[in-house]
């Protein structure tokens, strides 16, 4: 009896891997043929996306995803790490106990709500004060920075807590201030954990779809400034999936393959980095 249950539980435990394998299998099966037909180079580095004419170049979307993600990291990482240092080292325990779940709650807000806020509030501000269409790389980066904050803060706090107490005590005993201790001792010791958090946040930014569709403008050209409209890999799939058929649909699955590789690479790096201790 116990043996039977053990087998059953083992099968259940394998379900995650099975699902992951199925996802890879189906996305590849649907997407690989079009990549072979149009050539990997043409697909990845083609500058023209024109499904009606059978032109499937996703370079503008790769560049779009990179811009938007870079923007989100530039804004979100300093803010997130600062929040983590404050909550782990400076804030009174009672305050931290309230603020930490509040920041985690940012992850619970539906991405469509962020997108809506970007459209109604942020994009008009950018349009009026900085010019351009408003729906832009900058708008998307700002919103994504807030969306990845919980990931960065959560993982960074764990990393800071994992630094042995003696490091901190030793530094303070030598007469260093709290800030010197945080900056020179704790942050360097926690850097691999924090880096893992940043990479995971990057994965979230690359993978985010609905908010990005709503606020990035979705133009299919390669952007030239942060005020330009841009389309990301995820947005490309989501926008056209509703009506795509034939080659066009395969090309969207192929876009999914690129996204899948990107995310898998990021996750693998994050896991490697997180396992390294000090």
């Amino acid at each position: 009896m116990d043996r039977f249950i053990s087998k059953l539980l083992f099968i259940a435990a394998c379900s995650s891997i099975a699902i992951l394998a199925l996802i890879a299998l189906f996305i590849f099966k649907e997407g690989v043929p079009i990549i072979i037909r149009s050539g990997l180079g043409h697909f990845l580095f083609g500058r023209i996306w024109s499904p009606l004419e059978g032109q499937f170049g996703i370079l503008p979307f790769i560049i779009g995803s990179l811009w938007v993600t870079a923007g989100a990291l530039i804004l979100g990482v300093p803010l997130g790490v600062a929040c983590a240092v404050f909550l782990a080292e400076f804030a009174p325990a009672r305050l931290a106990a309230v603020l930490k779940p509040a920041i985690e709650l940012l992850a619970g807000i539906p991405s469509v709500v962020y997108g809506f806020l970007g459209v109604m509030w942020l994009a008009p501000i950018i349009r009026v004060h900085l010019g351009g269409p408003g729906l832009s790389i900058l708008a998307a980066s700002c919103v994504l920075a807030i969306m990845i904050l919980p990931t960065i803060v959560g993982v960074s706090i764990d990393a800071i807590h994992a630094v042995p107490r003696s490091y901190k005590e030793g530094s303070l005993a030598l007469g260093a201030t709290e800030w010197q201790t945080a900056w020179r001792v704790i942050l360097p010791a926690a850097r691999s954990g924090i880096l893992a958090g940043v990479i995971l946040g990057m994965g979230r930014a690359v993978g985010e779809t609905m908010a990005v569709i709503m606020i990035s403008g979705n133009a299919t050209q390669i952007p030239h400034s942060i005020l330009d409209s841009v389309r990301t890999l995820t947005a490309n799939i989501a926008i056209e999936m509703g009506y795509a058929v034939g080659d066009h649909r395969e090309a969207l699955f192929a876009t999914g393959i690129v996204l899948f590789f990107f995310i898998m690479a990021l996750n693998t790096v994050a896991l490697r980095v997180a396992r390294r201790r000090f």
Partner: peptide, 24 residues
């Protein structure tokens, strides 16, 4: 291996689950 699978699955973007669910 199982844990690696779980971590990877956790990182898969929702749009990919959408494509997967659609086709399967």
């Amino acid at each position: 291996t199982i844990r690696f699978g779980i971590n990877c699955l956790a990182g898969v973007p929702s749009i990919i689950f959408g494509l997967f669910g659609f086709i399967l």
